[in-house]
Nucleic acid binder design. Structure first.
Lengths: 333, 333
DNA sequence: AATTATAATGTAAACAATTTCATTTATTTT
DNA sequence: AAAATAAATGAAATTGTTTACATTATAATT
């Protein structure tokens, strides 16, 4: 590892001078500068960011971290893109990590990011009591939660109205005459899953349909589960006539299974999915979906984070964005 | 900012002792340890990772970086997942960054990752002459290239046989009777784009079809371009009867446009896409695609990187994986 | 020619931890 | 009781930069 001192020695100047060259200080003569630069080149020297940071530890790293629950899920990709574009506009860089809904990995990545001296963090907590997040907030690291908020601690969050989204979706199916509506949910510990389940239940209740727990399946929100559980639902003695899928990947899994079984959407089974996808129109049939503004969530979260980095004392803000029901063909008509 | 010295002072011990407590050194008495721990608690002290790192910079960070050209592209997500799973098995963490095919952003992220002391890097270079990559390799940072290799420097790479993939796709369309085959390519500076174009041209030539450059459109490999250019192709006086799309996003863009124009795939226009997607079966119609083993690419690249981190002197390896033509319905029959 | 101002460079002290080596104290062995 | 060993702690060097302050050389002013 070649260090500044090596450069200084080979160039026959002091370390201070090399440092000045490096930092474009004007008070160094042109010849000296050239000489030093030549040596820097020849030795292939790069200053150590660690040492630089230690020296003036007030300096921001201009990096934010983001911890994503599942990179396979296009919704989070949208969020990430929103964060990234906003970050870039504000001269921040984004380091992303994906924990694949795995608790241990989440903790690992949070620890790493915090110690990598990011200026702030955007995270989707595991649940409302996520201890690692609580600890980081307590330590004063600027954090904004996305997708899921926190209960036990005051922290910025950008979420959507999951209850209403699920309610709307269920109501649509009810309005279309369905009384036997299956629901494939994500893990019940995840707040969004619970809220969506509540919306589903409430809609049923409001329209006088009894809640039938055999019609509700819980999953890890991954595509394979969507496939599997759809098959289970369709093979019931009295299978549902409509299906509400709790997220993107579950929806795609359901589509896959239904096509494999050679059934028709929406005639054999109607579908409304949580999360729209940009290729929803190209699916067979075009998907009716509860659209979350992923990019907007990311944009807002990033903006809030940058504010908080500037002033960590400002009061916390909870932003609740609206979902939109996009009606296409998979729900019938 | 409370520092180790403050703790030492308040606890009435030396900094060395505090450091020992922190690092679970056995040679510190139980009483002292307890006393120090109490002070650490009360002062809410957290050691500075920057200082720690500066101190023993030889230690591995057990973090690898990855620089992704376009996070929107599901292919790269597969690669990332492969990398991540392998990394996790090997006790590495992955920090990902996405440069959205933007040269400036790529350089920014490479600089950041290198200075954030990652142990190694997996990158998809902008082109075969990517200067930032060359510089990093020269500096001795362990690097493995994915998707695209490098010409001017010896570096590990995991790629697929793009030429053959494109050749197969084009040949399939020719075999199905098409003589007027459009091609939506990515940026010509990107090696994979050129290789795919070459495969396309070669297949045409081998089967006695003249190359018609008006049938070939170049794009930034993003979905919007796919949409736009498909429309341009379809609105030609003598539009193609079949379309070969150069990647995932272009394919989805093409689907979108064709559906918007209310045309039928494959009757009005047949499609073969480069890159399979796990929901290809649920598209309307199911997509015929050149499947790249994304996950496998990621897995291999990660393994090669870990080897190189252990021994940066081992000879470089080029792995060329095969593509597979998955025939479904979008090409007709 | 002496004084002052300016420009270019160097010295050494930070920054916040870890660690080698030395020292003190307590314990065991002779 | 003296010597040897072990355990606990501390002093100070170290890590790679930056920078306040000091110094030297050069040019400008009196």
């Amino acid at each position: 590892m070649v260090k500044l001192r090596d450069v200084a020695y080979k160039a026959g100047v002091s370390t201070a001078t090399v440092s000045r060259v490096l930092n474009n200080d004007t008070s160094v003569s042109i010849e000296t500068r050239k000489k030093v630069e030549k040596v820097i080149q020849s030795l292939n020297y790069i200053p150590s960011r660690t040492a630089q940071r230690l020296r003036h530890q007030q300096k921001k790293s201009n990096i934010i971290g983001i911890v994503i629950p599942d990179i396979q899920n296009p919704f989070y990709i949208d969020v990430l893109q929103g964060i990234e574009d906003t970050a870039y506009d504000n001269e921040y860089a984004v380091l992303a990590s994906n924990f694949s809904q795995n608790e241990k990995r989440e903790k690992l990545y949070l620890d790493i990011l915090k110690s990598e001296s990011v200026d702030g963090l955007i995270a989707a907590p595991l649940d409302e009591h996520d201890e690692t997040i609580i600890e980081l907030v307590k330590r004063g690291l600027p954090i904004v939660c996305v997708d899921r908020g926190m209960n036990d601690i005051d922290v910025d969050a950008v979420v959507v109205d999951n209850f209403k989204g699920a309610y709307d979706a269920t109501k649509l199916l009810i309005d279309l005459g369905h009384k036997h509506i299956g629901f494939i949910s994500g893990l019940i510990r995840i707040p969004t899953s619970r809220q969506r389940l509540d919306g589903y239940k409430q809609a049923l209740q409001d329209y006088g349909i009894d809640y039938d727990e055999t019609l509700v399946k819980f999953s890890d929100s991954k595509r394979d589960s969507g496939q599997q559980l759809t098959i289970e639902l369709l093979q019931m003695k009295n299978p549902p006539t409509a299906l509400f899928t709790g997220n993107n990947l579950l929806t795609l899994g359901a589509f896959e299974s239904i096509h494999q079984l050679n059934l028709n959407i929406p005639n054999d089974i109607a579908i409304v999915g949580f999360d729209d996808m940009y290729w929803a129109n190209s699916l067979n049939p075009p998907l009716t979906a509860v659209s979350q503004p992923g990019y907007e969530i990311g944009r807002r979260a990033a903006e809030m984070l940058f504010q908080r980095i500037e002033n960590n004392d400002r009061p916390t803000v909870h932003v609740v964005l609206k979902t939109k029901l996009v009606i296409r063909r998979s729900c019938g008509s």
